[in-house]
Design a protein around this nucleic acid. Structure first.
Lengths: 202, 202
DNA sequence: GATGAAAACTAATAAGCGTTAGTTTTGCAA
DNA sequence: TTGCAAAACTAACGCTTATTAGTTTTCATC
């Protein structure tokens, strides 16, 4: 009866994946059913299997699309010649922008990767570990050149990555805070703190 | 056959809730089954219902225990006479400590509250909103007394709460970073940033 | 209009779910 | 030792799940 629409750029499979990201975000991977997904696409559940292999495959597509996007960007930034602190600022801004542009997929990749079956789970964790390692290296480089305070670099990376991830909660306040204020103030907070007049010491 | 053990302080129901937090954390609320929970307690699934009302009740117990713990603490700190910045530091340290002590329950409350049925879902969100409001008020008080930089207070609170929440990921590195370094460096990062010698300006 | 593939449909499967009913076992108090 | 309540058990219910099989419809191309 109804037929899954071809969007201008993207196959029907892409449309299914995009809708799956929306559904997995709002209902969680395990609680979301293929029947719900089908209904939101105006189709019966078995029809989906003309385009995809399994529910799990949808999660894989979402997680690795996001993982590869971040990985390729940090490699570009790392190769540049800017000071380490500028590179870190670029990465924070990149995180914030991607979080706002591809919210559903980033949310699902962040929250539902645990449900990946092996060997995809291990692959995903390796991608993430590698990303964090690149960021730690950047922080350490900044310390070596006295651009960055001498704190544990893993803690700094954990703090930064967790903070940008928290943009998930910003959705609720979209009307109250503009994306630009959010980005600038969060970058300022993560780089220079919130304290006045202590020159980086407590 | 097997019987659920009474721990020294705590009923059998408490023991079930504690084990449920562990299970919901590792498998997610929806993917975790009552049969799994029972097995981890050395019991058949229907036996659980001699002690609890439903699966959902377990999630409620976990979420509200955590919510009330944070709420009562922020009320104590807010009523004090310390400078706003000190109060905020206390709250950050409290978050970190609770995160390390009651990891399973805090994790579940943070991740699985969406599966609460009404009216518990609304109650939980109200508790959380109220908590964030208290924290925003504290930040604004600090700005009024020129203790804190003039950035958007909601963004500052978002950044702080997200960062401490990220301690979930610290588990992996437990061996490499001590709890004290983690706490001190994260507090330092969130209050005074990571930049050297710019006196809080970029 | 006929052909053939792509993609929809209906029907059904086996497995797993939370939970209830009814029964037996356990273990403390008399 | 008996009695009674607490808490375990087995069996089963009704439902939902992802997925498959088999069939029909749709639609672009000849």
């Amino acid at each position: 009866m109804a037929k899954i629409l071809n969007t201008k750029n993207g196959t029907k499979k892409d449309k299914i994946i995009q809708q799956a990201a929306l559904l997995f975000k709002s209902r969680s991977y395990s609680a979301a059913s293929m029947r719900e997904l089908a209904e939101s696409l105006g189709v019966e559940a078995p029809s989906l299997y003309n385009h995809i292999g399994s529910k799990s495959e949808l999660l894989q597509a979402i997680c690795f699309k996001v993982g590869n996007k971040f990985t390729s960007q940090i490699e570009i930034i790392s190769r540049g010649t800017a000071p380490a602190l500028s590179k870190i600022e670029s990465i924070i801004r990149f995180h914030i922008q991607i979080m706002l542009e591809n919210f559903d997929e980033v949310y699902v990749a962040n929250h539902e990767w645990r449900h990946l079956p092996e060997p995809f789970l291990s692959d995903f964790l390796n991608i993430r570990r590698n990303y964090e390692k690149n960021l730690v290296d950047l922080v350490e480089a900044g310390m070596g050149k006295n651009e960055i305070k001498n704190i544990n670099p893993y803690v700094a990376v954990l703090t930064i990555l967790s903070a940008v991830r928290g943009l998930e909660f910003w959705q609720r306040n979209k009307k109250n805070i503009s994306a630009q204020v959010l980005e600038d103030d969060m970058v300022s907070h993560l780089l220079t703190g919130i304290t006045i007049g202590t020159d980086g010491e407590l």
